[in-house]
Design a protein around this nucleic acid. Structure first.
Length: 330
DNA sequence: AACTAGGATGTTT
DNA sequence: AAACATCCTAGTT
């Protein structure tokens, strides 16, 4: 069986398909996600210095992680990509601390240095992509490997991708397809189903496929015969079979202030008192998780109110807007 | 305008 | 049947 190397995004080195390239390019301009207003640092800086790398894909796959570029070293070191260890004083790994300002990468790197830093950034890219895919998986409650998706998973992924990159709605064109079918489709078939953004979707899927492959290869070679599943499912609470409850979901968000602190946070963790800082945002996340695109805070809050009677959530003693309290804090 | 409370009813699992 | 999702009226901040 042949497996054309061109089929995978980072199959050989970092060479992405033409499509992956172009979509990532295109998406650069619409970096903000989901109307969240989260301003992300410009990617231009790094991209300019490292041609052929598509850092924007981080942006695309990220949810609302603002520390999007740094702290990759740990992630990458466990990944498949053999890394030329990151030297603390090397500059490429520091430069991601880009503030709202845009300034070119210092022009000092040439020749081997440039290649070295290129590899470093490559592994950073890979590590980030994997991490972001993982984040998306948790949010959508799907597996990272597209081949395992059922029809519902496929729709979720489509919705997510469309939303993230402001693509025209094409979910209907892929309605009756499971992940396996999707993966078997050529770019041409994608374009047939969706002339406007079929190529884009195909390229995105390509990235996911590649990530899954890498992950599998890595875990097989690394650990003995890992089920290749443990690494992804962090036993969050989402992998316990039954559909997630709203209160569980809220707990998950609260558990990750780094990711969601801007939309929901503890006021008093010991007492279980929390505040929803961005009601629309939280509702959107909930809708995404439950595959309910029409979800809003009106409906979400109604569901929270159902918890009053059940003694799961209540209003705190001093009732405040958008503030609730878990009756049984952990 | 956005949030709060809770009844009524439909939908999904 | 449980757990919402949806819709709605009425009162509050």
């Amino acid at each position: 069986m042949s497996n054309p190397a061109e089929g995978t995004a980072f199959g050989s080195r970092i060479s992405m398909t033409e499509d992956s390239h172009s979509i990532l390019e295109r998406s650069r301009s619409s970096a903000d996600l989901w109307d969240m207003g989260d301003t992300k640092p410009s990617v231009e800086t790094l991209e300019r210095g490292v041609p052929g790398l598509y850092l924007s894909c981080f942006d695309m796959l990220l949810t609302e992680d603002t520390t999007w570029l740094v702290k990759v070293s740990e992630a990458s070191s466990t990944q498949a990509v053999p890394m030329t260890r990151m030297e603390p004083r090397e500059e490429p790994e520091q430069c991601p601390v880009i503030d709202s300002q845009e300034q070119g990468l210092s022009p000092g790197l040439e020749g081997q240095e440039e290649e070295r830093s290129l590899e470093q950034v490559q592994s950073m890219v890979v590590g980030e992509v994997l991490k972001d895919i993982e984040t998306a998986c948790k949010l959508l409650n799907i597996t990272p490997d597209p081949i395992e998706w059922n029809m519902g998973n496929v729709q979720k992924w489509l919705l997510w991708t469309e939303h993230l990159y402001r693509l025209p709605h094409a979910g209907k064109a892929f309605q009756e397809l499971a992940g396996k079918d999707l993966c078997a489709m050529s770019e041409e078939e994608f374009r047939q189903r969706s002339p406007q953004c079929g190529d884009t979707l195909h390229a995105h899927l390509d990235i996911w496929k590649s990530a899954a492959w890498m992950k599998e290869r890595c875990s097989v070679g690394d650990t003995k015969t890992t089920g290749s599943e443990e690494l992804w499912s962090e036993a969050d609470s989402s992998c316990s079979g039954q559909p997630i409850h709203l209160w569980q979901f809220l707990r998950e968000l609260l558990l990750k202030p780094h990711n969601y602190g801007r939309c929901i946070r503890w006021l008093n963790k010991e007492k279980g008192i929390f505040k929803i800082e961005d009601s629309a945002h939280v509702a959107r996340l909930w809708g995404l998780r439950k595959n309910r695109p029409a979800m809003n805070y009106d409906k979400l809050s109604r569901s929270i109110r159902q918890y009053y009677k059940k003694g799961i959530i209540r209003k705190p003693d001093v009732s405040q807007r958008l503030v609730y309290q878990f009756v049984h804090p952990v």
